[in-house]
């Protein structure tokens, strides 16, 4: 009995030791040299593996940082300038600062403004619906509301508002990784410069139809009239394909374009109510849902 135990212990120990020795030599033989800075850089990154930087994950991004040894076209939108500063310190090079950005959904086509013209009965993903046709409304540029962007978001920062059926971004959680921008087949989501106090002014429409058709499909569509373009003193607004666009890098939040827009396609978010009450009641009514949604 006891001999059996001894034999077993001896045999197993021998096998164990032998295997350990072999493993040690194999590990030595096939060792791959890796720059230790990659590990350091990776630790200073947020570790979200969201792909917002354009690389397959934080590790790949760290490798790219070390390999290129300059940060001009490398930026981690999640970590922001602080994180990139740390990375630069580890590598001993200059950090390139970028303005923080936030995702913005450019459509206000709720049932109220944009009446439904048909009913979709297929797989409810935006990608499939938009490959079939223009959508459940007369506007072929607007939001489907099936939430491909919600599914794409790793940070729980975008949700469909059950009342409007349009996704809304939670500014605090949004890291501007751009996953939703890629997921949206209608190209509605844009990464815009982040202003203090969550303030935003943007054209909340992507309709490239001529005014009449656009207006017929949706009462708050941009009709490309050009009033805002004339009003803007900073050359921030351009009109292309019957559609206005405000460049957030040039915009100074003067709010002049908001008041001239005849369809309320341009909306302001995060501003205190205006003191001089010159708005017609229709205008303020149209502005409420988008503003209210972002202010909670």
């Amino acid at each position: 009995m006891s001999t059996t135990i001894i034999y077993t212990v001896v045999t197993l120990s021998t096998i164990g030791t032998l295997a350990a020795v072999i493993l040690y030599f194999v590990a030595q033989k096939f060792k791959v040299y890796e720059d230790p800075r990659i590990d350091d850089v990776e630790t200073s990154l947020p570790g979200a593996n969201c792909g917002g930087c354009g690389y397959a994950g934080c590790r790949a991004f760290a490798e790219a940082c070390v390999k290129q040894n300059e940060l001009s076209n490398l930026f981690c939108p999640v970590g922001g300038n602080d994180c990139m500063g740390d990375v630069a310190k580890i590598l001993g090079i200059e950090a390139v600062k970028q303005d923080p950005r936030v995702a913005v959904v450019r459509c206000q086509g709720s049932c109220e403004y944009r009446p439904r013209t048909n009913k979709f009965d297929g797989v409810t993903t935006c990608a499939i619906a938009s490959s079939v046709y223009g959508g459940e409304t007369g506007c072929q540029f607007g939001c489907h509301g099936y939430g491909d962007c919600v599914a794409a978001c790793d940070f729980d920062a975008i949700h469909i508002n059950p009342e409007t059926g349009i996704p809304e971004v939670v500014d605090e959680k949004c890291v501007a990784c751009g996953a939703c921008v890629k997921a949206c087949p209608k190209n509605l989501i844009e990464l815009r410069k982040k202003f203090p106090k969550k303030r935003k002014i943007y054209v909340s429409c992507r309709n490239e139809e001529k005014g009449g058709i656009a207006r017929k499909a949706c009462s708050v569509a941009c009709i490309g009239c050009g009033k805002c373009e004339k009003e803007c003193k900073f050359d921030a607004i351009t009109i292309a394909n019957n559609l206005a666009f405000i460049d957030s890098d040039k915009c100074r939040l003067c709010r002049k374009c908001v008041s001239v827009c005849p369809t309320n396609a341009i909306i302001e978010v995060g501003f205190p109510p205006r003191k001089i009450k010159q708005e017609t009641s229709e205008e303020s009514k149209a502005k409420t849902p988008a503003t209210a949604g972002n202010e909670k």
């Binding site: 223009g134 001529k210 058709i213």
Partner: peptide, 11 residues
């Protein structure tokens, strides 16, 4: 000459 509805579902 304008956009017209098409069977593709887009104008």
């Amino acid at each position: 000459i304008d956009t017209i509805p098409d069977s593709s579902g887009y104008r």
